[in-house]
Structure formats: structure tokens, C-alpha cells
Amino acid sequence: MTRTHLPGILAMAAIVVASNILVQFLFGQWLTWGAFTYPLAFLVTDIMNRVYGTSAARRVVLVGFVVGLICSLIGTQIMGEFGPLVTVRIAIGSGIAFLVAQLIDVSIFSALKDGAWWRAPLVSTLIGSTVDTALFFSIAFSGALSFIHPATDVSWAADSLPLLGSGPMAPLWVSLAVADWTVKLSIALIALIPFRVITGRLLRTA
């Protein structure tokens, strides 16, 4: 790890911390504000991968994982209206989802980086984001995985409601997951613009 990697490290740490804070605040019925900041972690990983290589990207992912663990541990000790701000299942789901999804992103990006400039960041982020959403919401809220931490009450997440308020009936946590996934995919497309601009500038000055 060199000084040139420091901006990526700081950016990843800031995104993880901000997302852990903003996830406490609702945005509409299905989302939190954290849903809009967390996907930027994939942008940071992809920029590091393009400019500094796979090893640097993996190191930045590891930093984000450690920072996320610290945030989760702190959250489990802060009591809110309905209990700890971060339950054990949320902490486990968050950590596993982040690490697995980001490492998948790094691997796919590395495999596609010699193609068109947009292919690697787009495909890796779309797949990574999908894995991240599936892992986090199922681990944190699915009744089928209650054995992970039986003391965590997720019965509210199993309430059957129309999907996103107008679709077929589904558990509440599925609507939350679909809304989160939709935001991730939208940001993946938008993030191609800053990816192109930032990597272009960094590569010219490297």
C-alpha cells in the first residue's frame, strides 16, 4: 500500500461510515438514505482496479470491510427505540455481503478490463450489487435463516405485503431488497460518468 492509494482508502472508509449512519434514516417507504451512498463503494473499487491494479483494489476492499465491522460493532452497542441500532444478523449480513460482493466485483473487473472501457465497471458492479443485495437482505431478514441468531426478532420483515406497494404479495424484506437493488443498478449506470472522468485523469498523471 502506497501513498497513491490513500485517496481510495479514505474514500472507501468515508463511504462505509456515511452509509452506516445514513441507513438509520428513511427515504420514502422502501429505502434509507444509505442506499444512495453505499453503491459508491463499487465505484471506488473499480477506479482503484483500473488505475492501480487488482491487488490495490483488494486492499481497499479489506479496509472497507474492517471499517464496516467497526461501525457494526459500535451500532450493536447503541440502543434505539426498538433495540440495538444494528442487530447481530444485520452486522453479519453486512460484513459478508460487502466482502463477498466487492471481491466478486474485483475479480470480474480484472477479467474484463482489457475490453471496452465501460464493460468492466458496468458488468462487475451489476453482478456485485446483485450478490450484495441478495446476501445482505436474506441473511439479515429472511425467516428461513433465523438460525443465524435466533434472538434477533425479524418477524416484522416477514409481513406479507404487495411488492413495492403494488405488485404480487411478498414478505416486506423482499420489497426492501428490490428497492435497494434498483437503486444500486441505477447508480451503477450513472457512475460510469465519474469512473471515466476520474480514471482518465489519474492515468494521465500516473
Rank of each mutant, 00 (worst) to 15 (best):
M1K: 01
T2I: 02
R3K: 11
R3L: 12
T4M: 08
H5K: 08
H5E: 15
L6I: 14
L6D: 09
L6M: 15
G8M: 07
I9D: 00
L10A: 14
A11Y: 12
A11P: 11
M12W: 15
A13I: 04
A14R: 01
A14H: 01
I15Q: 07
V16F: 00
V16P: 01
V16Q: 07
V17A: 13
V17L: 11
A18H: 06
A18K: 02
S19T: 08
N20H: 05
L22N: 09
V23T: 10
V23E: 07
L26K: 15
L26V: 07
L26T: 13
G28N: 05
Q29H: 08
Q29Y: 10
L31V: 08
T32E: 13
W33A: 12
G34K: 02
G34S: 07
F36I: 06
P39M: 12
L40P: 01
L40K: 02
L40Y: 09
L40S: 05
A41K: 07
F42T: 05
F42G: 13
V44L: 13
T45H: 06
T45N: 07
D46E: 07
D46G: 02
I47V: 15
I47R: 07
I47S: 05
M48I: 13
N49R: 10
R50C: 03
V51P: 09
V51H: 06
Y52C: 05
Y52G: 06
G53W: 08
T54F: 10
T54R: 15
S55R: 14
A56F: 03
A57C: 08
R58E: 14
R58M: 12
R58D: 08
R58A: 15
V60Y: 08
V61S: 02
L62C: 01
L62I: 04
V63Q: 01
V63I: 14
F65S: 05
V67N: 05
V67E: 04
G68K: 01
G68E: 02
L69Q: 12
L69M: 14
I70E: 04
I70A: 10
I70Y: 06
L73E: 14
I74F: 11
G75W: 00
T76Q: 15
T76D: 10
M79W: 00
M79Y: 07
G80R: 00
G80I: 00
E81A: 03
F82T: 02
L85G: 00
L85S: 00
V86G: 09
T87F: 02
I90F: 09
I90H: 07
A91Q: 03
I92R: 05
G93T: 08
A97E: 12
F98T: 11
L99T: 03
A101G: 05
A101Y: 09
Q102S: 12
L103K: 02
L103P: 01
I104A: 13
D105R: 12
D105F: 06
D105T: 15
V106E: 11
V106Q: 09
I108Y: 03
S110E: 10
K113V: 04
D114M: 12
G115L: 13
G115K: 15
A116C: 06
A116H: 13
W117D: 10
W117L: 08
W118T: 15
R119A: 15
P121V: 08
